[in-house]
Simulated scan of single mutants.
Amino acid sequence: MDDPTQAQQADPKVQARIRASFDRQGLMSHLGARIARIAPGRVHIVLPARPEVTQQHGYFHAGATSAIADSAGGYAAYTLFPEDTEVLTVEYKINLLAPATGDHIEAIGTVLKPGRTLTVCQLEVFGVQQGGERKLVANGQQTLIRVNRPGQ
């Protein structure tokens, strides 16, 4: 891969801010999702397979897949925002390309176009087998807005 963020990690203060925010998300905790990687403009979120996040056929549920994709993109944008701001999703579209199966799924949010107000991200979700084999199961795009932290 020729992705420059692959070798980079976000600044430790940025990582701490991202992790603290993520830890306050009830849905991510409820789903059992965790942040796997934080780089400038790029965040990976992993969701382990378990019955509570599947649909009736045993695949990862589209809602769980979409939720971690949304959060991965949001936090990717947040890595580039000033410390006194927050991030909110304006809209996102996701295409479910294949049934999501595997030991876990991994959502990767990547900033395509940062902005002072609006930021656009690419969303990818991979089904990952125990041996490491990866398959793209969802792809999307997201628009986020940077807002001042309440009380600022």
Rank of each mutant, 00 (worst) to 15 (best):
H61L: 00
I145G: 11
E91V: 03
A98S: 13
I145T: 12
A10T: 03
V46H: 12
I38E: 08
I94M: 14
H104M: 04
E91L: 09
G132F: 09
E83Q: 14
Q142R: 08
Y78E: 12
V14M: 13
R116K: 08
I145E: 13
D3A: 07
P48Q: 05
G109H: 08
R17Q: 14
V128H: 11
G58K: 11
I94G: 03
H61C: 00
G58L: 09
L112C: 00
L96A: 05
A98R: 11
A76K: 07
D70A: 13
A72F: 14
G109R: 12
G102I: 08
G58A: 10
L27R: 00
A98K: 08
Y59E: 02
D84Q: 05
R116M: 02
V53G: 00
E106K: 11
P12S: 09
T119W: 11
I94W: 12
I35L: 05
F126H: 14
Y75M: 03
Q141P: 00
G41P: 05
A69L: 02
H104F: 09
A64D: 04
L123I: 11
V137A: 00
L144P: 00
R116F: 05
Q25H: 08
A98G: 00
A107T: 07
T117R: 15
Q152M: 14
V43H: 10
Y75V: 01
C121Q: 03
D2Q: 12
A10P: 01
S29K: 14
G127I: 04
A98F: 01
P99I: 07
G26V: 11
F126V: 06
R149M: 14
H44S: 08
D11R: 01
T89Q: 08
A138M: 07
K135L: 08
A77C: 09
L118I: 14
A20I: 03
I38R: 06
T143D: 11
F60H: 11
Q129E: 13
A77Y: 02
C121M: 02
T65F: 09
K135V: 04
P150H: 09
I18S: 07
I68Y: 15
G131E: 15
K93N: 13
R34F: 15
S29L: 15
G41A: 03
V111H: 05
I108C: 13
Q6F: 15
T143G: 08
Q122S: 15
T85M: 02
G109T: 09
L112A: 13
L118E: 10
R50I: 01
H44W: 10
A100F: 10
E133M: 07
R42G: 03
A67N: 06
A67T: 14
V53Q: 02
A36N: 04
T101L: 13
F126G: 06
Y75Q: 03
A98C: 01
D70S: 11
R24V: 01
V53S: 06
F81M: 12
A39F: 13
I18E: 06
T54C: 13
F60S: 05
C121L: 03
C121Y: 02
I68D: 04
D103M: 04
P82Q: 08
T85R: 00
A69F: 09
R17I: 10
A72R: 13
